[in-house]
Amino acid sequence: MSLVDKGAETTAAGAREYLTFRLGQEEYGIDILKVQEIRGYENPTRIAHAPAFIKGVTNLRGTIVPIVDMRLRFNCAQAEYNSFTVVIILNLRERVVGIVVDSVSDVMELTPEQVRTAPDIESSIDAQCIRGLGSVGDRMLILLDIEKLMAGMDMGLAMAGD
């Protein structure tokens, strides 16, 4: 039995686990099953004419991985690279993509009762890419559908099956 299978066994009925991370003052969550690994930030190789939020590519054990800076993608005030800056390597529909975030917080289990529909407001994130808002105590998480977000036309990333 793999580690993922054991984790799925211990979750409450209908509960999902999310990796939480910070971008500025906001806290986001993505499905833990999409996460391959977490790495420290290293400058990627820049690609000419790529959108500003695509920082470039990196070689991850023989796989060329595009690196997307989520702070730039979501129009955060500034994107500062420090010792807390990390790259979350995602495995999305047989495509490996890295996303740069300010920091990773933890893994949280949310039951369906803890997830609310996001209000329909104007934002830099397409509303279809937000699964909902998760609340745990006084924490509010913006739960992203990371596959939809990375497959968006403005991302410039061709995803398998598109």
Rank of each mutant, 00 (worst) to 15 (best):
L19Q: 04
N82S: 12
D162S: 12
V115C: 05
D5Y: 08
M70D: 01
T58V: 14
M108D: 10
V4L: 15
R93M: 11
C76D: 11
T117A: 12
K34C: 12
G24K: 05
I38V: 15
N43H: 14
E122G: 09
I47Q: 02
R71F: 02
M159Q: 05
V115Q: 00
V57W: 03
I99L: 10
A12P: 05
R39V: 11
I121T: 10
V97K: 01
V96A: 08
L3S: 14
L141E: 00
K34W: 08
I99V: 15
A118H: 10
N91S: 15
N82W: 07
S83R: 15
G24Y: 07
V65Q: 04
G132E: 01
V136W: 09
Q78A: 14
R73L: 07
A8T: 10
E109S: 15
L133M: 08
L23H: 01
M140K: 13
G98S: 06
S105N: 14
L23C: 06
G137S: 07
T45P: 07
C129D: 04
D154M: 07
V96W: 05
A160F: 12
I30N: 03
I54R: 02
A12E: 09
M150E: 00
R73S: 02
I130Y: 00
L90R: 00
F74E: 03
R139F: 13
E17K: 13
G134T: 01
D69P: 00
D106Y: 09
A48L: 14
E147S: 10
L141W: 00
R95T: 09
Q128S: 15
G62C: 06
P119I: 04
I64R: 06
A118S: 11
Y28F: 13
I142E: 01
M70R: 01
Y81H: 11
G56P: 01
R93G: 13
D5C: 07
M159H: 03
R16H: 10
R22F: 09
R93K: 14
R95H: 07
R131Q: 13
